[in-house]
Design a binder for these strands. Structure first.
Lengths: 244, 244
DNA sequence: CAATCTTAAATCGTATACAATTTTTGTTCA
DNA sequence: TGAACAAAAATTGTATACGATTTAAGATTG
């Protein structure tokens, strides 16, 4: 009755392919490249992502491009409109509020978990990350600084070692990147860096309560740094009329 | 300079196509049918969903089936393994814990929002829903009772009128359905019904704090109603060896 | 000259076909 | 008998082709 187990089956049982519903192979590659481009603000919200165009750029068929775009749509970075195509998502003011509300609920809980679990090597990694963020800021590379700032938050989620929370945080951070691109008001971003350093201190002390509290304040502060006053809507749809 | 606006463009600006990244048209149809089948436990966790088979059943090509399966994978109901195909997801014990941890964090907050926003007609709808749940329970239709029980939670999320939370809750409820199918321990489900009635009372009084508190207890109670003791793992893989 | 209708180009939605991989089946040999 | 190997069948991954819809351009008319 026992049959020789196939090689592939053995691989499966051992490997931790718990990557959480990402498209596999080629599609994932394109998915990540597009995601990076969007998160680094090299693709502005509202820009059209033509299937043929993207496919030709990366040398793949529309089939795989569609898979990648669909995945990005699920993570909220891309909006797909029937018979019209895919566009870099352009979060509404309402969605911006909702995203930061959700972050203010989830990320503090995640920070507390992370503080209890963080290892010394992970502390080192976080410190390195913070330094890179600092460097980018000093070099005036705002896009990269913002990108790294987001990465700081997702890294914490990974440390918390909670797949569900990690997925949620990743999605929320991605949307936040677009939201900040559209609605950022404050000119100084030093505040960010300060909060992140305070978080580092809490992590070093393994003080979960402090980490939770700091993270909550930090996100509320970020939220208040946005200009979400409706008036922009008109201006945006105008510029949209010109560019699209 | 002004060009006559296309009909489709007008439709777009007016219609609220904020359906949140679901596949459009045919794919959505199949997506919903498969989802219903899984949530009603007519498709057991681990069952293979062959592209050809599903396509032939619903009379569509593999292309659209793939889109539907990918969407379901993103919502956590289906697991796709490279070069092997799609299967009804089979949440691990760890994922079960994570899902209910997340629910215990998010749903109470959602319940509070809902209590502040709920309208009279929505109260009526909830009452109807509760009654249907009650009927199914009395009729001994466990699958349907469980299905409706999940629906109660998503309905609350819709009332809270918060897209991000609603999406998260929907995904968590879906996974919970699978988790319960795999790990439910308690034989009585009357407790559920009781909690839901208590929630109704809080909603009727528009008492957000009470709703939040009740919902949190309810979810913790659900979590404790699961048998997540690892030992099952062996038993499951055995039965799996027989059925698959 | 502006608005409407018609026609052409471009783009998406879906089906089908072929290549790559896995799984099964059948055979051989110790 | 049971393990190891080889070939065949089945299934997925990807590319391409064709029909449908949208968008843009051009002609027409008041």
């Amino acid at each position: 009755m026992t049959r020789p187990v196939t090689k592939a089956a053995l691989d499966r049982s051992s490997s931790l392919h718990e990557v959480f519903a990402l498209p596999e192979g080629r599609a994932l590659e394109i998915c990540l490249k597009l995601q990076a481009a969007i998160l680094e603000h090299r693709l502005a919200p509202g820009v059209k992502l033509s299937e043929d165009e993207v496919g030709e750029i990366y040398g793949v068929s529309r089939t795989v491009v569609r898979a990648a775009l669909q995945a990005l749509a699920h993570s909220g970075l891309v909006a797909i409109e029937k018979n019209r195509g895919a566009f870099v998502a352009k979060p509404t003011i309402r969605e911006a509020h909702e995203v930061f509300q959700a972050r203010a609920l989830i990320e503090p809980a995640v920070a507390r978990l992370a503080a209890d679990l963080i290892t010394d090597t992970q502390l080192d990694d976080l410190r390195d990350h913070l330094e890179a963020e600092h460097d980018a800021l000093h070099a005036g590379d705002m896009s990269r600084a913002l990108f790294l700032s987001g990465g700081f938050h997702t890294e914490i989620a990974d440390i918390a070692d909670h797949r569900i929370y990690a997925g949620m945080v990743r999605s929320l951070i991605s949307r936040s990147s677009l939201i900040i691109a559209l609605y950022w008001k404050r000119s100084d971003t030093a505040c960010e860096s300060h909060s992140h350093h305070a978080l580092m201190d809490a992590f070093e002390k393994r003080d979960g309560a402090a980490a939770e509290s700091i993270q909550k304040s930090h996100i509320i502060d970020l939220h208040s740094g946005l200009d979400l006053k409706e008036k922009r809507a008109g201006g945006i749809s105008l510029s949209e009329a010109l560019t699209v």
